[in-house]
C-alpha cells in the first residue's frame, strides 16, 4: 500500500495487530468477500480525495459569498453537497458559525462521529477518551491544551455529534484577509478551526 514509509515487510517483526489484520484480510480475500484492490481504493480515497481541504473550501466560500453562507446556515447538507462533497458520514450536516459572542466546538462523546465528507478521517485526539469525556465537562481547559485561550466573555458551546447529524464549525474570517480570494483563504482554514479546537491561521 502507499504511504507506509515507516513500515517494513519482514514477517518476523509483525506486531500482534499487524498480524491480526493481515490474517483477517487474507481470510476474507480467499473467501471472495473482499478484494484487496478495493481496500486500496478506499484507503486512497481518504488519503487524497476526502479530507479537511474540502471543509476549508466550504468555509472559504462562506466567507466570500454571503448567499452561500446563508444557505450553509439554513441547510448545510444541501449547500455542502452542491460543492460536490457528499457521501459516507456526512449525510446530515449542520454548520455552526462562530461569532464574537459564541465559539463552537464539536465532539462525539459516544465514539467518533465526525463529518467525513468535509474533514476526512478524525485525528486520534478526537477519538480519545480524554477529549470525549472532558470537552463537555470543562471545554475551556481542554481548549487550553490545544493552545486556544478565548476571551472570558465569549460563550463556548459544545455540540455532541450523533450517527445521524454531524457538525462543521465555521470559524470567523481572520482580520487582514480583505481582498483575498477563496483559494488563498482556504489555505488559512485548519482542521482544528473547523472542529473548534483552534482558530484559522492569520495571513503572514
Amino acid at each position: 500500500m502507499p504511504h507506509d514509509h515507516h513500515d517494513h515487510e519482514h514477517d518476523n517483526h509483525l506486531d500482534p495487530m499487524d498480524a491480526r489484520v493481515r490474517a483477517l484480510e487474507t481470510i476474507l480475500t480467499r473467501k471472495g468477500l473482499i478484494d484487496p484492490a478495493a481496500v486500496d481504493a478506499i484507503i486512497d480515497t481518504y488519503a487524497h480525495k476526502v479530507g479537511p481541504q474540502n471543509g476549508a473550501a466550504v468555509v472559504a466560500r462562506a466567507w466570500t459569498d454571503p448567499d452561500f453562507a446563508d444557505w450553509l446556515r439554513r441547510d448545510a447538507t444541501a449547500a455542502i453537497a452542491a460543492m460536490g462533497f457528499t457521501g459516507r458520514q456526512g449525510e446530515h450536516m449542520q454548520a455552526v458559525f462562530n461569532t464574537p459572542d459564541q465559539h463552537n466546538v464539536i465532539v462525539c462523546t459516544l465514539c467518533s462521529c465526525y463529518p467525513w465528507t468535509v474533514l476526512g478521517l478524525p485525528p486520534v485526539w478526537y477519538k480519545s477518551p480524554a477529549y470525549r469525556s472532558r470537552v463537555v465537562l470543562e471545554p475551556r481547559a481542554v481548549l487550553a491544551e490545544f493552545g486556544l485561550e478565548l476571551p472570558t466573555d465569549t460563550k463556548v458551546r459544545v455540540w455532541d455529534s450523533t450517527a445521524e447529524l454531524r457538525y462543521l464549525v465555521v470559524p470567523m474570517r481572520p482580520e487582514g484577509t480583505e481582498g483575498m480570494g477563496p483559494e488563498a483563504l482556504a489555505a488559512l482554514v485548519t482542521r482544528e478551526s473547523m472542529v473548534g479546537t483552534g482558530l484559522p491561521r492569520v495571513p503572514a
Binding site: 515507516h6 513500515d7 506486531d15 495487530m17 484507503i43 485526539w125 480519545s128 481542554v142 491544551e145
Partner: peptide
C-alpha cells in the same frame, strides 16, 4: 488531551488496512 503536531493519518500500516477492510 494530547494533540499531536502534524499527526499522520495512520500510526501503523495495519491501521489503514483495518479502515479499508
Amino acid at each position: 488531551v494530547a494533540p499531536e503536531q502534524d499527526e499522520p493519518q495512520y500510526h501503523a500500516a495495519w491501521e489503514a488496512r483495518a479502515m479499508g477492510v
